[in-house]
Design a protein around this nucleic acid. Sequence first.
DNA 1: TTGCCCGTGTGACAAATGTTACTGTGGCTA
DNA 2: TAGCCACAGTAACATTTGTCACACGGGCAA
Lengths: 211, 211
Amino acid sequence: MSEETFILKNTFPNFSNELIQEIETNSSFQSFKAGDVIMRTGQYIKSTILILKGQLKIYREGEDGEEFLMYYLQAGQACAISLICSTKDQKSQITAKVVEDVEAVTISLALMDKWMMNHRSWYEFVIYTYRTRFEEVLEVIDNIAFRAMDERLEFYLKRHAKACGCKEINLSHQEIALELNTSREVVSRLLKKMEQRGLVHLHRNQIELKI
Amino acid sequence: MSEETFILKNTFPNFSNELIQEIETNSSFQSFKAGDVIMRTGQYIKSTILILKGQLKIYREGEDGEEFLMYYLQAGQACAISLICSTKDQKSQITAKVVEDVEAVTISLALMDKWMMNHRSWYEFVIYTYRTRFEEVLEVIDNIAFRAMDERLEFYLKRHAKACGCKEINLSHQEIALELNTSREVVSRLLKKMEQRGLVHLHRNQIELKI
DNA sequence: TTGCCCGTGTGACAAATGTTACTGTGGCTA
DNA sequence: TAGCCACAGTAACATTTGTCACACGGGCAA
């Protein structure tokens, strides 16, 4: 078994052997550096990527360049939006930026379309991806629709900790503010209150989550 | 051609003849009255519905019973969420309420799953539905993340007018406030400002859109 | 007609959030 | 070491939104 096969099988354990083989013969491996923007709002989607390693964030851009975090993508996942844009010349509605160096497999739209019909395990992956992302987006809506900034910040920190698997969050207040579409001062203020309540411990460039 | 076949073919012109036939033989026609709640947050999804006539609204419920409008469903459409929940015992994340009396076809999950593989036109319908709803939800996120209440209200009114196909909106300020998750007073205040700007003309129980 | 409810309008105030301005501090580098 | 810069803290104020209180008028039913 080649190294690629091994990684693919491990990262996407539900894919059938035939599918893995098809992926290997038909698609290309690629790397991206932290900070790279893989997809930008308004660009045409020509392919999708399966993530083997690293982390991406998917966010919505406002008219004045505001960012708004939707969700993170990690190894074993794919971007729901690019999975579904189908054959039409579909413009991306979101931006994808690399958080940690990414290794990925690029798959053309035509192939995806074919696989949907021929590979049960691909079909299930797509449906699963779509469903979970839709749910995640619904949760995001809940947060901004029903909750105030303090709760949203708390939710954001927990989600971030979960995504990176540790309780130390290495983000500046400015970065957090961007993703929640608010201002640094507000984030500082609320974090200070959270610290008083014992929920976090604040350091320079690091927030230690204590819950 | 039976009456049902005729209606189905007209409402879902992209469905193949074989698919239409399958729908007819395997699923049941149902009616719902305005105000009925077809699906509620937390309920298990056992089937999906294709809408032949009338209008539904799909909204998210907050913990204290707040509503938050996601989108409307009309003839020729289906609920994206129920389309994708697949075989798992999936709980609904949204609530669906009838706005105008609805006639619909109910389809079990098992059938949907089968059709995805066997009927290209069903597959395309599902993908199309998912994509467009995802986009709509992204737009909703834009609105609450990046825009203030006055813009959101304007957007809401336009969307409502578009959905019902006329410029007279027969809603009380209270109802609008619920769907935007704000209070009646705020809606009144903003509508008054819009009237001063010449965007609307206010009547009792009716808002006349002038744009 | 009278009384009542609903929808609406509005002022006054409270609370949350955004903005401006300034301070301090740690670390890097010229 | 001095100067610079990014990050963080915070006070003061503006703006937006939510809340409370109350008034007005239309229409309906007793």
